[in-house]
């Protein structure tokens, strides 16, 4: 009937007005991203508290943007003394996490690291052979 579509539209918007808003109050309310979202990466530690990384280089070979840098221990080639992430170059493709045969890398669920300083985008996940836990966040 002529005009029934108009009434239907009015009904839809009225229903919206009576329902809850879907927008999020972003800077005031933080929501955790979904579990499978690709965010900043961090390093797992093993039972002894040492980095889980075995310096196999698979992540570095797989990284399309040359984000990662790894320095091996000259005495123990299966130990990393330094692991640097230049997150300013990262496209969050997730290939490093996916490729790691030891599940040493994981996504932190942190997505808020905007900064004015380029240098602040470089994270040291391993320094002097120990995990720095840099950039790991505890979100509620």
């Amino acid at each position: 009937m002529f005009g029934s579509g108009l009434l239907k539209g009015l009904g839809i918007t009225l229903r919206h007005a009576l329902g809850r808003p879907v927008t999020e109050l972003y800077p005031f309310e933080h929501k955790n991203p979904p579990a499978n979202s690709r965010t900043f990466i961090a390093m797992h530690v093993n039972e002894e508290g040492a980095p889980a990384c075995r310096a196999c280089n698979t992540c570095i070979v797989g990284c399309p943007d040359r984000v990662l840098k790894l320095v091996k221990d000259p005495d123990d080639p299966k130990r990393a003394v330094e692991f640097v992430v230049n997150s300013g170059r990262c496209t969050y493709c997730g290939l490093c996490v996916e490729n790691c045969p030891f599940d040493a890398l994981y996504f932190t669920q942190d997505y808020e690291r905007a900064t004015r300083d380029k240098g602040a985008l470089i994270y040291h996940l391993i320094e002097d052979g120990a995990c720095t836990h840099e950039g790991e966040v505890d979100r509620p």
């Binding site: 918007t13 007005a17 809850r20 879907v22 927008t23």
Partner: peptide, 13 residues
């Protein structure tokens, strides 16, 4: 405010 809620937004807040 009203149009915000009609469109499931919050309007001025």
């Amino acid at each position: 405010k009203f149009i915000g809620h009609l469109q499931r937004r919050r309007g001025p807040l």
